[in-house]
Design a protein around this nucleic acid. Structure first.
Lengths: 340, 340
DNA sequence: GCCTCCAGTTAAACCGGTTTAAAGAGCATC
DNA sequence: GATGCTCTTTAAACCGGTTTAACTGGAGGC
């Protein structure tokens, strides 16, 4: 493990100045082609790669992007979204020599502290803003911190940042149409926490799709995206005087737990009760019966978000929003015609 | 967003030299207490925080740790381990102003490229080595790269790195004892890929515990930790001329999928077949019937790993291995006495 | 009163790049 | 042959810290 070569070594070997090496590396005009070749050859022979740290200091960039996630409500622990999303992000970053810095905010602090830390330490050039809340205070915070960002889905307030959008509505509508088409009229929903923009978006889409079919939700419960929440809300729905014949959950985790709760209550799915989820997580296909759900593509979401954020970071003004192909219905065995 | 103050600003304000400010900040001896106070006060008034980048360059440290994960076999996507592990790591890093850099290796490359990238870019001061393989080539690679590391669990070859160990054996033994205690004699296992140290460790522990009870495995299938693998191996086990009355899976994901496969095959769990998993993932408690499994504490694992790695990074020689409290049995409804 | 010693402080070099201003070379112009 | 101009190249400053070696001023010893 000998010390790595520096730009000075390359310059010496090529018989030029440090500045010229820098110019050659960054492909700046003003150098004779022959000189450029000579320098690149020298760099190659020495196996030189410019030091990130030195570059960071002189150009005031971190060459890294940041993602803040809250761990608290176990929201994270079996969320199929983040891992795939992160993989998508990385697929873009690794080709550009950038890194992804994770900031997990633990119970004690507010999520905003996470962003504040990233900004104060100047660890990243920009951040991904996920799980938008209504009137999300983080947007103002990031503006104040001067930290570029991209939002995952469209915020409801003013935002100076581009958004990468995956529209949940078509998928939600498709689920409702599917259930209605099977003959269901008593459909309930287990929504996500109303503080989240995407949770209420799905709720609204659900209500609208039902209305379009001339129906109303028989009940709407609010879950917290966890399996425990799925159990509890399902029990409440099943205890209604006139329980629903179909339940649409805002994510697969709650749906799978709800499936368990229904079975524990002695019901057969889908004969007695139809169940649909949202995410198409890995287990959705393999539980019994297989879960009808809505599939998005978080990997691609990550890719698009990283590309978009990089445009902002690179100083591109007025980066347009990006629309991804909408989520689509995946029909499996957990939905069927309602009991007579 | 005005420019942040530098050490020179602080020095000027306190009426001292840059060097003194640096000394005061780092608590080095040789400064009069009164001077230190004056400097710290000035720093405070200006809200100065030393620049990570500059520090990084001059002390040749990244103030960050790295984690490389392979995304490919969807191993990641619903693995309950990593998110909790990462949260544990962060709980240590955030108090020290360090960051966690994630490197996701995508399909095309080998995982080693991930470490190589982290090392070449000098992005991190050390890395976590997870999912150890037999004679893991990454250990040699890290030595060669001069990158400090800590291994999650004990490697089987020589290793210069400390290990953080969570012993799976007591939990595995407890599962077997539990099943034997219920009266099972035909117990099968769905193991993990034999390339992984922890997979074979669990397998061996399983075989040994059975042997201690005077039994032999009725069959051992090798899964790949995915839900799809859980389905397939379960089908094979159930198709045996004399199928097992209990199956022990190497992780919850395969177990939950296996549960679905058994139910799809018309079996009632646990009356016809007992099922046990490993991990105590969130869904384990909420599927129907609740999954008997083995619970570890990945958050604490992350904490311990981060602390240990930091000792190595800080130049502590001979950091001892750390033993965590072993995983323990969690009995739920998916296990019962075998059918007569 | 002079020399030593030492605690306290500072100037300057350094980390490894980027960037700017200026110098130098080569050639055409008058 | 001096002047001007373009094309290359370089020296030096800079980013914001850390670290080393040298320099203070004052106390203490003789």
């Amino acid at each position: 493990m000998t010390k790595r070569p520096t730009i000075a070594d390359v310059a010496r070997r090529a018989g030029v100045s440090k500045g010229s090496v820098s110019f050659a590396l960054n492909g700046r005009p003003g150098l004779a082609q022959s000189t450029v070749d000579k320098i690149l050859a020298a760099a190659d022979e020495l196996g030189w790669r410019p030091s990130n740290r030195a570059r960071s200091l002189s150009v005031s960039k971190a060459f890294a992007l940041g993602l803040v996630i809250t761990r608290d409500p176990a929201v994270l622990s079996s969320d199929p979204f983040f891992p795939a999303f992160i993989a998508g992000v990385e697929s873009v970053l690794s080709t550009r020599g950038q890194a992804l810095v994770l900031q997990v905010v633990t119970a004690g602090e507010s999520e905003e502290d996470g962003y504040r830390r990233l900004a104060q330490d100047a660890r990243v050039d920009g951040v991904f803003l996920s799980d938008l809340r209504h009137d999300d205070p983080r947007i103002g915070l990031l503006v104040e911190l001067g930290l570029p960002a991209v939002t995952l889905n469209r915020p409801d307030g003013e935002s100076p940042f581009p958004a990468v959008i995956l529209d949940d509505r078509p998928g939600t509508g498709a689920v409702v149409e599917h259930l209605v088409g099977l003959g269901h009229t008593r459909i309930a929903q287990v929504a996500g926490p109303p503080a989240f923009v995407h949770a209420t978006a799905r709720s609204t889409a659900f209500a609208e799709a039902l209305a379009a079919a001339g129906l109303e939700p028989v009940a709407v419960e609010t879950g917290d995206f966890t399996a425990a929440g799925g159990i509890e809300t399902t029990r409440r729905l099943l205890a209604l005087p006139e329980p629903p014949t179909a339940i649409f959950y805002a994510n697969d985790r709650m749906a799978i737990a709800g499936l368990g709760a229904a079975q524990a209550a002695g019901l057969t799915v889908p004969d007695d009760l139809s169940i649909a989820g949202f995410d198409d997580s890995e287990l959705a296909e393999y539980v019994h019966p297989g879960l009808t759900t809505v599939r998005a593509d978080p990997f691609r979401f990550g890719e698009a978000a990283a590309q978009t954020l990089n445009r902002v970071v690179d100083g591109d003004t007025d980066v347009p929003d990006v629309e991804l192909p909408p989520a689509e219905l995946v029909v499996r065995r957990s939905t069927a015609a309602p009991p007579l």
